[in-house]
Design a binder for these strands. Structure first.
Lengths: 194, 194
DNA sequence: AAGTTTATTGACTCGTCAATCAACAAAAAA
DNA sequence: TTTTTTGTTGATTGACGAGTCAATAAACTT
């Protein structure tokens, strides 16, 4: 039965199952067996490919970040002018793919892990650095030396909206989140113009 | 040796130890033994007084929220005018007592729990309701029917700043957080005036 | 004095789960 | 064809930890 070249297929299945299960249970307390079962294999195989549960979760987060990064790059390429670029970043942040329950739940648990686990901390730093740099470079032409500060507060706003998304009951509403973030931005820029 | 009337003393010690240990370990995976040890008693006694680990953690969060609530009430009583009231709420949110590492770490883990544990969910809803109502009533005279929207975005901002606080390394800096939140507010209000 | 309530803990139960291992199967390489 | 590499799992290990319990003791009640 063993077909060759299963590794990437299995890994992808595990990564997706990890996200689903963590979203379902709401914490990192999911067992490897649960994840493996959802991915259609034994827990031993999951360990075989990833070595440890933490490694599995980190791979899942890398996957989420990769998708997000691709969406941001797409939006940046299509955007016209600095303001369009910022709108693009924000819309990507709250797009249905990234702002869905499971992904946001994964983020929440990732934050917990990043407090103490160095690999998670590093990964988070990379992500935050990219977001920050994207925001700053788009803001620079609009806000000059206020770019850093605005990027900072926009970043906090985005995180806060993610957090509220996990905590609220009811269906996700990316549109409202984008609206709030955009209003914040708009208002900051308007202030600069004054 | 048993002195009577130990219950409140033990409970308080446990509540404080819970916060410290969760802050130290960074997750809810602290053992009851660790907490009990820090509080200077056996784990059996901790179970005797609280029944379960979750109950213990909820008591810790109630404690944190009580302190915060007291500080907010104090600030509101001393504040002059609606804008002063909002500033008071924000300053209380980021005061050294509430914005310290341990407390913020406890919040992060509380959010995780509130995703799924109904008692935590209820407690969070109560807290969020109070914050929202405080903000809205202070904002009403300044922003009229935009009060709800501003309260919403200010709330998200506060959560986001808390989150960033746990994640960043280095000493806590409540002052900068207040500054960011106040700027956000100021800018929202300025926009209303236009 | 006898009985009850409160405080306290060491020892134990019971369950769970990450990680490992031995073993089996099929494809590819030699 | 033998050997090696890749895929796969059931069973097991080993550790850990929440919650219970029996037992001990001091204080308070009657």
């Amino acid at each position: 039965m063993p077909k060759l070249g299963m590794e990437p297929i299995r890994k992808e299945a595990l990564v997706k199952a990890t996200i689903v299960e963590i979203g379902r249970v709401g914490s990192l307390d999911v067992t490897v067996s649960q994840i493996a079962k959802r991915a259609g294999m034994s827990s031993a195989l999951a360990h075989h490919y990833f070595g440890s549960k933490e490694e599995m979760f980190l791979a899942a987060m890398r996957h989420i970040m990769t998708l997000y990064g691709a969406e941001v790059r797409g939006a940046l390429a299509a955007a016209e002018g600095p303001e369009g670029r910022i709108r693009g970043i924000l819309r990507a942040s709250f797009s249905p793919g990234n702002f869905r329950r499971e992904a946001v739940g994964a983020w929440l648990n990732f934050w917990v892990l990043a407090q103490t686990a160095p690999p998670a901390k590093r990964l988070l730093a990379i992500y935050q650095g990219r977001l920050r740099s994207n925001l700053v470079s788009a803001l620079r032409p609009l806000a000059g030396d206020r770019a850093e500060g605005i990027a900072e507060s926009l970043g906090a706003m985005i995180d806060g909206l993610y957090l509220r998304e996990v905590l609220k009951s009811g269906p996700p509403d990316g549109a409202e989140a984008v609206a709030l973030a955009l209003r914040h931005l708009e208002v900051e820029l308007a202030r600069g113009a004054v």
